[in-house]
Each structure stands twice: as C-alpha cells, then as structure tokens.
Design a protein around this nucleic acid. Sequence first.
DNA 1: ACCTTGTGCCGAACAGTGTTCGGTGTCAAG
DNA 2: CTTGACACCGAACACTGTTCGGCACAAGGT
Lengths: 204, 204
Amino acid sequence: MATRRRSPARPERGRGAILAAARSLVLEGGASTLSLRAVAARAGYSPASLYEYFESREALLAVLAAEVIGRLAARFGRVPESLAPRARLLRLGSAYLGFARENPEDYLLLFGRMASQRRAPSEPLGSGNPFGVVVACVQSGIDGGAFCPRPGFGAEEMAYGFWALAHGMARLEAEHLAGYAADFESIDRLVLEAYVTGLERGAG
Amino acid sequence: MATRRRSPARPERGRGAILAAARSLVLEGGASTLSLRAVAARAGYSPASLYEYFESREALLAVLAAEVIGRLAARFGRVPESLAPRARLLRLGSAYLGFARENPEDYLLLFGRMASQRRAPSEPLGSGNPFGVVVACVQSGIDGGAFCPRPGFGAEEMAYGFWALAHGMARLEAEHLAGYAADFESIDRLVLEAYVTGLERGAG
DNA sequence: ACCTTGTGCCGAACAGTGTTCGGTGTCAAG
DNA sequence: CTTGACACCGAACACTGTTCGGCACAAGGT
C-alpha cells in the first residue's frame, strides 16, 4: 500500500510536476527568464508551495542542470571506447557540440550556474564526469604515443584545452551567433581536428 | 537638508557621473547584480533621472560594454604587426586572456549581452574589430604559407576556432574556475600553441 | 514686469521578481 | 475524539526595471 491517496486521474503532482513545468518553461523561454510564479501556475501550485519541494529557485535549476549533465554524459557514453584516441576525442567533441546545438536552452542552463567542484588539479574527478572522460581519452593517447605531452602540458591540460575549445564554440554559437548562416557542424569538426593535430606533434 | 540645487563643487554630473557609478558597481559586484537604484544613489540621482540619460538598464550596460571593447581593442593594437603570424597570433591570444584575467567583471560584462552584428560570414567586419584583427593575422599566415588551409577551413574558420578557444578558456576561468589553483597563464599559452600548431600542418 | 517654454530632476506608483510567515484544511495514527 | 503532521496557500516583504505627473528654476520673447 505504498500508494498515494490523491486522485490517480490527476496529472503528476509534487516534485515531478514542478520539475516538468520548470523544464518546459526553460525550453520555451530560457533559464534566465524562468519565473517561479509561472512554474507554480503551470504545475498547479501556489508560489509558496514550491518551497516545500525546493529550497530556492537556484536549487530547482540545479536539479534541472543535473538532469542535463546526465543526458550529456549518456551521449558521451555512446562514443565507442574502442576507437583510437584521436578519433574518439573528435567524436567526444562532436557529441558535446551536437548536444549544445540540439538543446541550446538545456546547454545554457548547464553553464549558466555551475561552478566546478574541484579546487585544484590534484583533486580527483567524479566517475562519469564528462570532463573526466575527456581526460582519460587524452591520457590513453599519451600512453599510446599518439599525443605528445610537454612540461606543464600533460593530459589534464590537453583535455582542458579541448574542453575549452568545444565549450567556447558551443557558447558562441548558442549565445552570440544564433541565426548566423554557417555550417557550424563541419566547421566545429575541422576546428577540433586542428587542435587534436596540434596535440599529436609538439609545438615546433 | 533639502538642498537640491546644483553645486559646482560636485565632482561630475550627468552621463559621466552615471557611467562612473555604474562601472564602479560592476567592478564591485558584477554586471548581473547591478541595480539602477544603486547606480542612481551613487551618482546622486533618483532612479527616474537615469532615464534622462539612458533609455534602459540594458542601454547603460551597452555603453559600458562598448568602452570595454575599446580597451580590449587597444590591447590588441599593442601587439606588434611586425611579428610572424604564429608569434603574433599567440600574442593576440595571450592579450585576450590576460585582459579577461585582469578584468574579469569587465570581460563578463562584454559577453553577457552582446550578440554579433554579422549574420553571415560574407559580411565584412568593422575595422578595429578584435575578431577582424585575428582573421587578418591568420590570413597573412596562410598567404605566407605558414598555415595550411583546407576545403571549408580557411582564414575565417581558423580564426573562429582560435577565438572560440580563447573565449572558452577565458569564460571557464572567469565563471567556473574562479579560485582554482592552477597557473592558467602558462596553461593557456600552451593550449593556444597546440591549436596554432594544428593550423600549420593539415590534419593528417 | 509678465508669460511661456524648456530643462533637469524627483516622488510615487506599477508590475514584476524571489522569498517568508502565519495560517488553513485534510488526513492517519493514538 | 483528539492529536499531530503534512500539503498547501494568501498575504506580505523587500527587491527589481520602468513610467508618469509635476515641481523648481533658467532663458527668451513680449
């Protein structure tokens, strides 16, 4: 008898309903303009009731962001591990950029608020962390001799550059170049290739 | 008490005073939390009076952003044109990242609101436009045989990747990695070198 | 001197935001 | 029946950007 006593014909209620309402509003108008009153109205609550389920607006958005991270991580997980480091890295980059291109509001929601949990490069990365996947891929490229590390430019730094490159293109395209007439999918790939090529041979 | 007549001893009034107040508040707490009432109080005006000088809060921030662009462009102008394309490109990148590192609030103010004026790659870039400077530098590298273009990956695309790389690192460091213990100045340089190296030889 | 015009400025208000508080009504357990 | 917890909400608070009507004063024309 672990069931709710509320009328089962009703649409979902509670946390789930609020999150669904919030997510649909984010997709419609972006995270920055999301209003708690609008969320409450769509979910069938009063504004005050949202605080029974979430500590604050920021906490609500954090839950939404965590879901987005999960979807991005799942997309990373679909890139075969059997690929050679160079090919795998390029596929990871395209997965990242494709995700941002197909879900711009989700993507911006993700990076509008999250700060890294780490405070220093020595701290470990959570397993399944998308950035950690990139680091591991670069490391395997170094181990196999494909990538050429230099003093102060090891796997973490190489992966950081790759991440920043994908991140930079994704944000520019989502925020500043919306509606810009260009084939970003192929441009992004060529740009990523250039960077990875630069990892393969040390800077002359 | 109710002394509301002009006092010539006052430091400055009008647009200049408002912009100065707004800029100091941005440096203190960031652009996103800037309140017009706080600006008005610091500049010695009522909130309503700000609208005599600026159409809206957004318009005020746009003027501030234009000033920041000018400072960034000036920094780009200090990179010698006599340098070889590779060295010049790296210096431009370091200038960009150094500016963002030294003036994070200014930098975020810049990219928090501006969308590109261009709608297609064919449209010309304004002279003095920082991105245009990068494009020109890459073009000279192509002309001199230092950089190796490919189909669909010419000067604009190469420069776009470079810009996105610098932009991505600058934003990550300003927004998500504040307080992160790492020598970003040298990491950034090594990352930029890797990308430029990738431009020099086509992707194998 | 008067009257007009214009300028610079502000108080008050409007509509919106996130958030908190005090209180309902309903339900399960004692 | 009583108790207590829980879900929920109306109203308010302290903010935000913005608009409107009007006040005080300087200049110009007559």
